[in-house]
C-alpha cells in the first residue's frame, strides 16, 4: 500500500516535472513574442502589417497563458473552458461593437 502510493507520487512528481518543462518553453516563447512585438514597433515597420501581427502575437501569448500556465489544456477543465469562452464571445462582440458602430 505504502510503496504503491509512493510510486504513484513518484509518477506524479515526474508528470509535474514534465509539465514544468513545457511551461518553461512556453515562457521562453512568450518572451520572444514580446520582443518581436516591441521591436516591430520600435523599428517602425509598416503600420498595415504591424497591427495584425501584434494582435496575432497577443492572442497566441494569451492562449499560452490560458492553456499552459492556467492549465486549461488539462482534463477537468471543460466547464471552465466553456464559461471562459462564453465570456470571450460576449467580450468579442462588445469590443467589436464599441469600435465599429460607435461614431467615428
Amino acid at each position: 500500500m505504502v510503496s504503491n502510493s509512493n510510486s504513484s507520487s513518484e509518477y506524479n512528481r515526474k508528470k509535474n516535472k514534465e509539465e514544468m518543462k513545457q511551461q518553461l518553453i512556453t515562457f521562453t516563447l512568450m518572451i520572444v513574442f514580446t520582443l518581436i512585438a516591441f521591436s516591430m514597433v520600435i523599428f517602425e515597420f509598416d503600420k498595415l502589417y504591424v497591427i495584425p501581427v501584434l494582435l496575432i502575437l497577443a492572442v497566441v501569448q494569451v492562449i499560452f497563458q490560458l492553456y499552459y500556465f492556467m492549465h486549461m489544456k488539462n482534463k477537468d477543465h471543460e466547464m471552465p473552458a466553456f464559461m471562459f469562452y462564453g465570456g470571450l464571445t460576449v467580450a468579442t462582440i462588445t469590443i467589436l461593437t464599441l469600435s465599429v458602430i460607435t461614431w467615428w
Partner: peptide, 9 residues
C-alpha cells in the same frame, strides 16, 4: 453612445 451600448449589452 458608449453608455447606450454598455447599458443595452
Amino acid at each position: 453612445i458608449i453608455w447606450e451600448h454598455l447599458f443595452w449589452i
